[in-house]
Design a protein around this nucleic acid. Structure first.
Lengths: 160, 160
DNA sequence: GGCTAACGTTAGCCGCTCCAACGATTGAGT
DNA sequence: ACTCAATCGTTGGAGCGGCTAACGTTAGCC
């Protein structure tokens, strides 16, 4: 056995909204990472692929804005996607500072797979809640982040 | 100005529960850290002080169980609290492997202050929500973490 | 043409969580 | 009584995620 005696977390801590958010987020990230990890992917891979399918080929700066991935980190993400041939990175002939990142057919197919895995993870995450409650939760969280989000072009925060 | 054009995050990403949780959590942690940081404290300080006031003097292992702070990291937390004289660390005469950590009167007073700061942070965090909605949110999050929590003595996760 | 700004890239820091190992101490088994 | 396993506090370090700083390159402006 390990420890046991009164492993009770005080209610004052247990019901702290910020703490609940933190714990829920940790579990969520773990579930997502495990699900996508099974397909040799990380959450940022999914985000980038979605952004590409949604708005077509784009520069890395545009992708950064649409996904919330930091410029510095996007480099590695595109590297990983490119070496798996899910994406193609080519210099933009119109503006030679930029790269044009394009979704390959293989990438589009992979995106389908990731979507399924991701959906399963969300399902597992929300499994204790009814459909109504899930909508409530998403709605409330959306209000929260919308309120605290810069909302202007520059997003200072994460984007998990 | 920075970038601007169509900084629109695809809805498929924006409404992902796991992503919303991540962003909300990030904002929450930032608000809490800023609030407590103004009083030279970190969230774990608050957690430890609460646990001590709630259940009286305790060994570090017991504190770890009650707060969710990892054994390894609790050492530094107690160090910081002790050097601020909010807590006293003494060897347990009954079991010389253990330390008994005791809340000092100064520590109890400091806890009051941190509580106020923390409450203010929670208030700011939840400001866009009505009282009803806040209760809903806390309730839903509680269900989520309860479901995904080990619930046995050993908690494998965080405890933000 | 010279200044400013954007782009992609690299390197590194910081905070956080977690694991592995250690010496000291305890309690149980036989 | 002695051995053995387990617990406690502590240390060091690995790993990750988000972020800043700087650089060379390229574009646009006046």
């Amino acid at each position: 056995m390990t420890t046991d005696e009164s492993g009770a977390v005080p209610a004052r801590l247990r019901n702290l909204p910020s703490r609940l958010l933190g714990q829920a987020s940790t579990h969520a990230q773990r579930l997502v990472a495990e699900a996508l990890g099974g397909a040799d992917a990380r959450k940022w891979h999914y985000a980038a692929l979605v952004a590409l399918e949604e708005s077509g080929p784009a520069s890395q700066a545009a992708l950064s804005g649409r996904t919330g991935i930091h410029r510095s980190d996007l480099v590695a993400v595109i590297n990983e996607l490119a070496e798996r041939e899910l994406v193609e990175r080519a210099p933009d002939p119109g503006d030679r500072r930029r790269n044009v990142v394009t979704l390959t057919p293989l990438g589009r197919r992979r995106l389908r797979k990731l979507e399924h895995l991701l959906d399963a993870a969300q399902e597992e995450l929300l499994s204790p809640l009814s459909h109504q409650e899930r909508e409530q939760l998403v709605h409330l969280l959306g209000r929260l982040v919308a309120h605290h989000a810069p909302a202007d072009g520059t997003m200072g925060a994460d984007g998990r």
